[in-house]
Amino acid sequence: MSDKNREGKRSARERMLEERAEQEARSRRNKKLVVGGAVLAVIAAAVVVGVVVQNQRSKPETPTAAPAGTIGDKNLIIPVGAPDAPSTLTVYEDPRCPACGIFERTFSPTVDQLEDAGKVFVNYHIVSFIDRSLGGSGSKYGANALGCAQNAGHFRDFHDVLYRNQPDETADTFGNKQALIDLGKQVPGLDNAEFQSCVNSNTFAGWVSAVQQDFDKSSFKSTPTVLLNGTPIYPKKGDEQISPENLVKWVDEANQGKQLGTPGSHGQSPAPTSTAAETNNPPSP
């Protein structure tokens, strides 16, 4: 009898213990579910907030302000030479890209001659992606300074000075705005407060970003990318290596039987006077 009683007691206690253990397990499970749910909610919220914030922070693909005289549907292109020239040379360059520096130092006299003869209309896309891989701001500030020079009607001269003084790719000299302003002093017409403030305030930063975003979406992956009437010619056109002589030859071949263009003042548009820049760029109210 007493044995039976003891047995009953034990099983009652066991049952109680079991129940309590079950309860604890359930509450542990609930806690885990709550924590897991909170974690997923935090992550989802972070991603949504991130996308919204970055959307607001990103610069538009269509710039709100572009340098005077730029062309194309979003005003991303800097034109040099006669717009009615029979051939178009399209150049994508980054101010910090060493291959672009080599290209410019080798070809700019030839390109200038072709422009001045009304043989080519050159379209520059000043891109700025070297900063991404090497850090710094030389590509972006250099591109902005080129935009400032274009705005003042001195793109071609400043462009040539910039590439002649290009530092080593890893040195971020162009990230120093004063260095860009000092280079501007070598170009008659850029040694003034207007150019300096344009460089210092990074006036065309939005335009620079828009030009780069346009390049990002293009099928071109490296600089310099050089196209003659849409056909890539750098480093080769078909089997032929590019050289100043070959460039002239290819342009003449393409222009055969066509009327040459009439280049404006020194191949630059707007004409290199401060009034031209002002009339093309009315101050916003």
Binding site: I43, A46, V47, V49, G50, V53, Q54, S58
Partner: peptide, 11 residues
């Protein structure tokens, strides 16, 4: 591209 860094920061 915009959401990924915030996912990483949340983690």
């Amino acid at each position: 591209g915009w959401g990924l860094p915030f996912l990483e920061l949340a983690l």
